[in-house]
């Protein structure tokens, strides 16, 4: 078995178990406030830690990435849909990189 298959088996297996176990097994409600609170905060902590500072190295320059970041936060702040936020970020990075070429 090659390394890719091992990695993918672990990725897919862990991800599926996380999704499957609660839906298959849990019928009642969790009562622990700590556990509920912890699980509530996890997605936001994960996505924030994944985004900053990595987003600033996701394009060809920190400057264009910073423009994309600022635009994405602004568009998301006004509650626009996911796709709109993502495409606004891409569009503003493109604009910033075109401008940077001529400076």
């Amino acid at each position: 078995m090659n390394d890719y298959i091992k990695y993918i088996l672990v990725m897919a297996g862990v991800t599926y178990l996380i999704r499957m176990i609660p839906m298959a097994l849990v019928k009642g409600k969790i009562s622990s406030t700590f556990v509920k609170s912890f699980i509530y905060y996890v997605p936001y902590a994960v996505l924030s830690a994944m985004t900053i500072p990595a987003i600033f190295y996701s394009t060809s320059s920190v400057l264009s990435a910073a423009v994309g970041f600022a635009v994405a936060v602004a568009v998301a702040y006004f509650g626009k849909p996911l796709l709109t936020v993502a495409l606004s970020a891409c569009g503003s990075v493109l604009a910033a990189e075109l401008i940077l070429r001529f400076i």
Binding site: P43, Y44, L47, S48, M50, T51, A54, I55, S58, T59, S60, S64, A65, G68, F69, A72, V73, V75, A76, K80, P81, L82, T84, V85, A86, L87, S88, A89, C90, G91, V93, L94, E97
Partner: peptide
């Protein structure tokens, strides 16, 4: 380069 930021944009839209 411009598309490289898309996934992060999606995370920002969720957070």
């Amino acid at each position: 380069n411009a598309l490289g930021i898309a996934l992060y944009g999606m995370f920002i839209a969720i957070v």
